[in-house]
Simulated assay, not measured.
Amino acid sequence: MSRIVILAEGSFQFHAAKTAVGVIRYSKDTVVAVIDSTKAGQDVAQALQTNFGIGIPIVRDIREALPYQPDTLLIGIAPRGGNLPAAWRWQLLTAIEAGMNIVSGLHFFLSDDEELRQAAEKHGVMLYDVRRPPEKKVVANYTPHRAGSHTILAVGSDCSTGKMTTMLELEQTARQRGLNSAFVATGQTGIMISGNGLPIDHIICDFLAGMVEEMVLDFCEKYDWVFVEGQGALNHPGYSPVTLGLLHGTLPDAMIFCHIAGATTIDGYQHCPLPSLPEMIRMNEDAVNWLHPHHNSKVVGISLLTHHLSEAEAHAEIQRIEQETGLPTVDVLRFGADPLVDAIQRYFNA
Rank of each mutant, 00 (worst) to 15 (best):
P70W: 10
L291F: 15
Q176K: 11
V32Q: 05
G301S: 09
W225P: 03
Y26S: 07
S37W: 05
E171L: 03
L84R: 00
R63C: 03
I35T: 05
A343K: 10
A119N: 05
L246H: 02
E114M: 12
R346E: 09
T329R: 08
Q91M: 10
T161C: 10
Y347T: 10
R334Q: 14
S276A: 14
E221L: 11
V300Q: 09
V216Y: 12
L74T: 08
A140C: 10
T306P: 08
F52H: 07
Y347G: 09
G210K: 02
V5R: 00
G55I: 06
N284S: 04
L333D: 05
N101A: 12
P134E: 06
K122R: 15
V332P: 02
M255Q: 11
S160V: 12
I75T: 02
V59M: 02
D286Y: 15
E279A: 15
S157V: 07
L327K: 05
R3A: 06
R146L: 13
K18I: 12
Y223P: 00
A40R: 10
Q323Y: 15
I102L: 02
L247Q: 08
L84F: 10
V31E: 01
T50N: 10
M126Y: 10
L234A: 11
L170D: 02
N83E: 12
V44Y: 00
L127H: 04
S160E: 15
H259Y: 09
L153C: 09
G238H: 06
E121I: 13
I58G: 03
I281M: 09
C272Y: 14
W88L: 01
G99W: 04
G232F: 03
E313H: 11
G336K: 13
L7W: 00
G268A: 05
I302A: 11
R132M: 00
L333V: 09
C220Y: 15
M283G: 06
S181P: 08
E9S: 08
E171A: 13
L327N: 07
G22A: 10
K39N: 06
C205P: 14
N51F: 02
G190Y: 01
A147C: 08
F348S: 08
G232P: 01
A263T: 03
V138D: 06
C272R: 07
P57Q: 05
T189R: 00
A65N: 04
I96A: 02
S11N: 12
A40N: 09
I4H: 00
H308I: 10
S297G: 14
F348T: 08
I24K: 02
A33Y: 07
D36M: 05
T265L: 06
L116H: 02
V288M: 03
H15C: 10
F257D: 07
P293R: 12
G22Y: 01
L74H: 03
D61L: 12
L92W: 00
A47C: 11
T165Q: 08
G268L: 04
V59I: 11
T325Y: 05
S194C: 08
S276D: 11
G249L: 04
M164N: 07
